[in-house]
Design a protein around this nucleic acid. Structure first.
Length: 219
DNA sequence: GCATTAACCACAG
DNA sequence: CTGTGGTTAATGC
């Protein structure tokens, strides 16, 4: 049962787990497949079992990548609990296995089991703090700082390695840091010239993390 | 004024 | 899909 792996689900008893497993469906997604779509009615909370996903919202001007999320985690909690329709879309960035949990089942478990609810609240709070920081970064830093910030996030949080394949193309990176495709290109070549990173297509290697961190902090 | 930052356009691999 | 050059607008000494 996939959900067993979730931190929150550890606090469920056998009966509750049974309720969960009977109202939960596992689905595999290939890279670029849409897991859920903005503006459509949503009735599931989704637990990511493996893989990686980008959350995208269509803004007033252009689209915006909200966040890259890596399994194991829940996605769509705010968008499913907060309203009837999805406020953003989720698209697989790599092959991903997800578990769809019926919203009424999920609510029932929240009601039945305080430990489960507690874990969910913790996750949501962490995520909100995260968003606050992201918001300030986006508003107060220049593009270089925002890009460096995300490169370090990829290395430290997503891949646990200083060498990795970018989960996004240049255009999407621009959508992530509120910039333009051209600026991202230029910055990559500049960072490479200064031997701070090495680039080969989507392959990135961070050569000088101290300098990169300095760029991130200075903005 | 002059420099810097970064977006938009166009064109080329 | 990417990289580069030219242009341009906004902002800050």
């Amino acid at each position: 049962m996939c959900i067993l792996k979730s931190e929150a689900a550890k606090s469920l008893n056998t009966g509750e787990l049974k309720i969960l497993s009977q109202n939960c469906v596992e689905v595999d997604f290939k890279k670029d497949e849409v897991i859920f779509k903005q503006n459509v009615l949503s009735s599931n909370v989704i637990y990511l079992q493996s893989g990686m996903v980008k959350l995208i919202i269509a803004g007033p001007q252009r689209k915006q990548i909200l966040k890259i999320k890596k399994a194991p985690c829940y996605i769509g909690l705010p968008t499913t609990m907060g309203d009837k329709i999805n406020h953003y879309s989720a698209v697989a960035v790599q092959n991903t296995r997800a578990c769809f949990i019926d919203i009424s089942t999920f609510k029932e478990l929240l009601r039945l089991n305080p430990d489960f609810s507690y874990e969910i609240i913790i996750e949501l709070c962490k995520s909100e703090l995260d968003q606050f920081h992201r918001c300030v970064n986006l508003l107060q830093k220049q593009v270089f700082g925002r890009l460096a910030n995300n490169l370090i996030f990829f290395a430290d949080e997503l891949y646990n390695s200083d060498e990795f394949d970018l989960p996004l193309n240049r255009n999407e990176l621009a959508d992530l840091v509120c910039s333009s495709r051209e600026s991202i290109s230029r910055m990559f070549t500049e960072l490479a010239d200064e031997k701070i990173i090495k680039i080969d297509g989507k392959r990135i290697k961070i050569l000088n993390k101290e300098k990169l961190a300095k760029i991130r902090d200075k903005g």
